[in-house]
Nucleic acid binder design. Structure first.
Lengths: 158, 158
DNA sequence: GACGAAATGATATAATATAACACTTGAAGA
DNA sequence: TCTTCAAGTGTTATATTATATCATTTCGTC
């Protein structure tokens, strides 16, 4: 069994660096400006593998000395979600970083209620089940939300 | 192809009646009180096959002359969701009636962005894909949210 | 009828999100 | 280089969604 969630002692700096690099690539490929504000918000989101709310981001920005207001944060979030660099977790009203922003994907989010971490998975069986179900009823899919709450392997066994 | 969504000219009164009867059964089976307030809220939710927000419900109640406040509505919603009589659609912050409250099910919601209707489906392939994916990563599922947005067959073809 | 638990009423406020308009910045052409 | 204009950000106000808290009422059980 491979745990989707990052190992306890992993080098998180590398996660952040890699995410930033990928984000810059994607932004460039889309002719989109990865401004300072957007980079700050993106980096804050990547500070952990948990989902973070807009107002938590706002507090962090203000703690850093940035004079930000809610619209600033929501705009950055909108931009990042639009490029697929982060995902919104509907059931938490929170955001978290995507580690595969390069390709379109129908992601599923596993959310641990104990440690708060989120892991994204891409599962072909699930994707095809969704598409087959939609096809069977003549529904034209534009967006899907699949969020699974419970206990991650670490929290379920310790 | 069978459309999940109700036919245009269907007798909606029968939907409501049947839903009410089922809800009463479920409440009784759970030794739960289906009070007047809860019945009102439940009936309002069943007025359409769309999802309705808490504050829309509040407005409707007040229009009916009931002196209700937000907590009243949220309590009724909590009760109804708890018994599985209604479902919350996370991506809409709204609620809609379940037509199979008798059995546990991992439901999927198809949401039409054009007409606003919601249809619930239960799909074994999808359920088993979710469970298989969770098993593969040692995740213990407690709740799942599957919401699919797009165009229903009617709206996609007309 | 008295009691206690459950439900509801009422007030206040927290948490999440957006509208509207002003100002700044930066890329692209003149 | 200067101008211009669209995109981005700042700022203020407010809309929308949700809950905490305590008082009162209702209802089944004794």
């Amino acid at each position: 069994m491979t745990d989707l969630f990052p190992e306890k002692g992993h080098d998180h700096g590398r996660c952040i660096d890699s995410a930033l690099r990928q984000a810059e690539d994607v932004a460039e490929a889309n002719n989109a400006r990865f401004t300072d504000m957007r980079r700050r918000v993106f980096t804050l989101i990547w500070q952990s593998h948990k989902a973070i709310t807009a107002y938590e981001l706002l507090d962090s920005l203000q703690a850093e000395g940035v004079r930000a207001q809610p619209p600033t944060v929501y705009r950055a979030l909108e931009f990042l979600v639009g490029l697929g660099l982060i995902h919104r977790i509907e059931s938490l009203n929170a955001y978290f970083g995507c580690d595969m922003p390069h390709h379109e994907h129908l992601g599923q989010y596993f959310i641990c209620r104990n440690c708060g971490r989120v892991a994204e998975a891409v599962n072909d069986d699930m994707s095809s089940a969704v598409h087959a179900a939609a096809r069977a009823v003549g529904f034209r899919i534009e967006a899907t939300t699949i969020e699974i709450k419970g206990l991650c392997h670490d929290c379920a066994t310790h």
